[in-house]
């Protein structure tokens, strides 16, 4: 029983981080309808930013953290202005491919700048594992989860109450209507990209703190697809629920199936769940089929 609880607890902890990264995807999709395949690379670059400020430049953790957010926002802004703005109204495949191209550029640049050697952060949190009842959670997981949840909550509040959040939701709902209400739709796109990049970068920072960083860290970004399909592409709450489910499924599969199934079941399991869901509901668990007109 305690084995089960431990798997679930760790699943929840990792799931919280997935939720944050998925949020980086959802924020962009919600406002711009762009599917960002480079979310994983935004995450990886964010982790390297933190490494640069803390290890290479020797800044304390808190200023480094703030600088990571600023730099990631800038990265999102530049990407939107330089590339995505030219892709408005293009077919889905072009938009998907342009973000895939972007992910390749970011990956290559990271290797050029930081080399492909393994890097890690100095310890940020007390080493002692956190013990809740019978369950033992590694300290990096626990604190990562806390930071991720705080960030998700902050984004959710921003989206719901702040003026810019309301404008973004309006843009997501109906671009033409938002435009005619005097909302600067284009600047909303930029804001969405900046916020998406920040969310992904924070996720990367937490993951990097748990397992160290390498340029191919971005591959983890693929896991967000099961998360967003589960949770619905444009729902913040869905991203959180989806993140938890994927985190738990992954850990349970890894814990119980490990002895029976070869290879990395942990990575496979979310995709199997994804396929099952798409077979039953081709538009995702919470997605809605739109009424088509002729």
């Amino acid at each position: 029983m305690s084995f089960f609880l431990e798997l679930v607890a760790n699943g929840v902890a990792v799931g919280g981080v997935y939720a944050l990264i998925a949020l980086g995807f959802v924020l962009i999709y919600k406002a711009t309808s762009i599917i960002n395949f480079a979310t994983g690379e935004f995450m990886m670059i964010g982790a390297y930013f933190f490494y640069t400020f803390m290890v290479l430049l020797g800044l304390p953790a808190v200023p480094a953290f703030i600088l990571v957010m600023a730099c990631s926002a800038l990265l999102g802004l530049v990407v939107e202005r330089a590339i995505l703005r030219h892709m408005l109204g293009q077919p889905t495949i072009s938009i998907i491919m342009v973000t895939i191209g972007l992910s390749s550029i970011l990956l290559g640049l990271a290797e050029l700048i930081w080399t492909s050697d393994f890097k890690s952060f100095p310890p940020l949190f007390p080493r002692a594992p956190v013990i809740i009842g019978e369950v033992v959670i590694r300290s990096n997981f626990f604190w990562g989860f806390i930071i991720a949840m705080a960030a998700v909550a902050a984004f959710a509040l921003l989206f719901k109450y702040a003026k810019v959040g309301v404008a973004m939701r309006a843009t997501a709902d109906d671009q033409m209507a938002a435009f005619s209400m005097g909302i600067n739709v284009r600047s909303m796109f930029t804001v969405a990209w900046a916020m998406g990049a920040i969310a992904a970068a924070l996720g990367g920072l937490i993951i990097g703190n748990i397992g160290g960083i390498q340029p191919n860290l971005g591959h983890l970004g693929l896991t967000i697809f099961p998360v967003v399909i589960l949770g619905g592409l444009d729902s913040i709450a869905g991203a959180v629920v989806g993140g938890f489910i994927v985190g738990i499924v992954e850990n349970l599969a890894g814990g119980y199936l490990h002895d029976y199934v070869r290879g990395d079941v942990k990575e496979l399991a979310p995709f199997v769940v994804l396929v099952l869901i798409l077979l039953i509901k081709p538009y995702g668990l919470f997605g809605k089929q739109e009424i088509e007109r002729l």
Binding site: I83, H86, M97, V98, I100, G101, S104, I105, L106, G108
Partner: peptide, 14 residues
């Protein structure tokens, strides 16, 4: 090669 690969995709699409 990774960078150029990505750049080619982006530049052609744009």
């Amino acid at each position: 090669q990774t960078v150029v690969f990505g750049l080619l995709i982006v530049v052609f699409l744009v």
